[in-house]
């Protein structure tokens, strides 16, 4: 029983990280109806920036905040420069651009920082640990919850958040009431990149830092986003936690750790087949 509890709690900690990345995916999906395949690599790149800052002698938390800021700016830039031209292009073109972005970020990170695996510091004091969870697990879960709360407050209570939601939901009408829809999309990308950066910095002490560290995480985030409903932010969070726990339990007791990634594959294909809108997503109906 204790072993199960241990796995569930560990699952919640990693699940929180999947939830953040899934939330980043959902934010971009809501605004543009696209799934960003480069989300994981964007987070990986931001984590390298944080690593460089920490190595240059900046304290962890200043480096953390600075990284989130840089990631935000990079996200806005990517939307403006790379994604803008294919906004109304066919799906294949957009997917190809995303994959191109993934590959470029991955190789540039490898180029600058080499492919050697690096360790990444965890900022949480040992006192944070409880009986069944390491300090980093508790800390990561806390940070995730804080990020989620901040996002909720931002979208629910600020005029800018309202404008962004409006732009995502009904671009034409939003334009008519004076919202700059293009910039709202760019801001959405920036926010998604910032949230992804937090996820990257939280997961790096666990999986270690290397240019390919996010490929598995991204897969779990896909599964989480789909499970919760790709257009539902709340669903993404629940999905992330469920996927984290499920992955840990199955990995520990049923299929073994090496096949954990297959759980994500089965979940993704399964959800898409059985219930494409996930648990909380809205059902898409299209006229022909």
């Amino acid at each position: 029983m204790e072993a199960v509890l241990l796995q569930v709690l560990a699952g919640l900690a990693t699940g929180g990280i999947y939830a953040s990345l899934a939330l980043a995916l959902v934010m971009i999906y809501q605004a543009t109806h696209l799934v960003n395949f480069a989300q994981g690599e964007m987070a990986m790149f931001a984590t390298y920036i944080a690593w460089s800052l920490v190595n240059a002698g900046v304290g962890y938390w200043p480096a953390f905040l600075l990284t989130v800021l840089i990631a935000f700016v990079l996200g806005v830039l990517i939307e403006r420069v790379v994604i803008r031209p294919v906004e109304n292009a066919p799906v294949l073109a957009v997917v190809v651009v995303f994959i191109g972005l993934l590959v470029i970020l991955n190789s540039v990170a490898g180029w600058i920082f080499t492919y050697t695996i690096k360790s990444f510091p965890s900022p949480f004091p040992p006192a944070l640990g409880i009986r069944y969870m390491s300090p980093h697990q508790v800390g990561a879960l806390l940070v995730t919850l804080i990020v989620l709360a901040l996002l909720y407050l931002f979208f629910r209570f600020t005029p800018l958040g309202l404008a962004m939601r409006a732009a995502a939901q009904n671009p034409v009408s939003s334009r008519l009431v004076g919202i700059r829809v293009g910039w709202m999309l760019a801001l959405g990308w920036g926010l998604a990149a910032a949230v992804g950066a937090v996820a990257g910095m939280m997961v790096a002490p666990i999986v270690y830092l290397d240019p390919n560290m996010m490929s598995g995480i991204l897969l779990y985030a896909f599964a989480a986003a789909l499970l919760g409903g790709i257009d539902s932010p709340g669903g993404a969070v629940v999905g992330g936690l469920v996927v984290g726990v499920l992955e840990n339990l199955l990995g520990a007791f049923v299929i073994g750790n090496e096949l954990k990634l297959v759980v994500a594959l089965v979940l993704i294909v399964g959800v898409l087949l059985v219930r494409p809108s996930g648990f909380f997503g809205s059902v898409q109906v299209s006229r022909v």
């Binding site: 799906v91 897969l219 789909l226 073994g256 990634l261 994500a264 898409l272 087949l273 494409p276």
Partner: peptide
């Protein structure tokens, strides 16, 4: 068949990522 455009890309991407662990499986 039930997956259009983006979702098929997602499912096949997942297949590609999970292929090496399957091949390595004990």
């Amino acid at each position: 068949l039930r997956l259009e455009g983006l979702y098929l890309a997602l499912a096949t991407f997942a297949l590609a990522v999970s292929m090496p662990p399957i091949l390595k499986a004990h």
